[in-house]
């Protein structure tokens, strides 16, 4: 380790054989912090043998510390923490950032406790102050306040909200080093038996984008178009009560007073007039986009972006424009 160059370290979470994309977002922010501190930007990735690491280097990592072992095949925080702690106590990074995914939010507190240091949860911004200390900004009280937090101990640790920062852009020219690490410890018996049951199902209340259809949809099959838009934007499909009652789509998708209440980053209402029942379920979305032929539809009163037009013209254009596919008729 070179004491002249402190390390800003990102803990990357495996997603199959790839790093979880939140690591790319952390590389974007981490690069700014590393430059401000004249530090190296390092990544610690634990995963099963055969992990892909080039994307981390291309997106700005100076070093990728790679620990590969079948013991990382299941989400068992204790194993990750035990192996990481042994290494991190040697490396002594100044800052450790972890993505605030479910796994990250479960792993980082144990890691912080093992390293006997503080941890700030779910940060939405980070910067270095004039003394080179990390200022961590996080929302609290159900997003009503933002607190700036600093850590007295080292390393300064934070988990960072997913989809808060842009991903660092890949640059194939960027040089970095992959340092393969042997497991520092034998794999401990944690006293936990883990088995995978099934893949995740639709949960529109957790989606970051919800594309909803209403009375403006002429037939059930037309939901395919909304599904493609949702897929393109990494979201899920919702629906108004009318089309659920008409049997176009299951009640799992219903948004409103007698359906689900959703709070996505972007809510796209297609052919939905915006009855109070519907508004009750989606008015807390960060951004509301409304597409409707009726300029007097109440949905336009709550929309950030209102498009007066036919969803059958607008939605296909949106799909093609934002990277999905839809045939031109």
């Amino acid at each position: 380790m070179n004491p002249a160059h402190p390390s800003i370290l990102i803990v990357a979470e495996p997603q199959g054989q790839q790093p979880h994309p939140v690591a790319y977002e952390l590389l974007h922010k981490g690069r700014q912090l590393a430059d401000a501190r004249q530090a190296t930007l390092d990544v610690l990735l634990c995963g099963t043998p055969g992990m892909e690491t080039a994307s981390l280097i291309h997106r700005g990592a100076d070093r990728v510390y790679l620990m590969e072992d079948p013991c990382f095949a299941l989400p068992e925080e204790q194993i990750f923490v035990a192996q990481m702690t042994a290494f991190l106590k040697e490396l002594k990074p100044e800052v450790i950032l972890t993505g605030a995914t479910s796994f990250g939010r479960s792993l980082a507190p144990r890691l912080a406790a093992a390293l006997n240091t503080g941890l700030t949860a779910d940060c939405t911004d980070l910067h270095m102050d004039e003394n080179g200390r990390l200022v961590q900004t996080r929302p609290a009280f159900s997003e009503n306040i933002l607190a700036n937090i600093m850590t007295d101990t080292l390393p300064q640790m934070a988990t960072v909200r997913y989809q808060e920062f842009p991903q660092a852009m890949p640059n194939p020219e960027h040089q970095g080093e992959v340092v393969r690490l042997p497991l520092p410890l034998p794999v401990p018996d944690t006293g936990v038996v883990i088995e995978k049951l099934r893949q995740l199902e639709v949960d529109i209340t957790k989606a970051s984008v919800v594309v909803s259809g209403g009375r403006g949809l002429k037939q059930q099959d037309d939901f395919a178009m909304l599904r493609e838009l949702a897929r393109t934007l990494g979201g899920e499909v919702g629906a108004s009560r009318t089309v659920v009652e008409d049997g176009f789509i299951s009640k799992d998708h219903q948004v409103g007073y007698s359906g689900h209440r959703v709070k996505p980053q972007v809510y796209i209402a297609c052919g939905i007039s915006g009855s109070p029942q519907h508004l009750a379920g989606m008015k807390e979305a960060d951004v509301i986009v409304a597409i409707n032929t009726d300029p007097s539809a109440p949905i336009f009163q709550v929309a950030d972006v209102g498009i007066v037009g036919d969803l059958y013209e607008v939605v296909p254009q949106m799909i093609r424009r934002y990277g999905g596919t839809w045939p031109v008729l």
Partner: peptide
């Protein structure tokens, strides 16, 4: 003109 609906698909609701 914006506040008068005449087409059935708009008035149905």
């Amino acid at each position: 003109p914006d506040w008068v609906l005449t087409e059935l698909e708009q008035t149905l609701g």
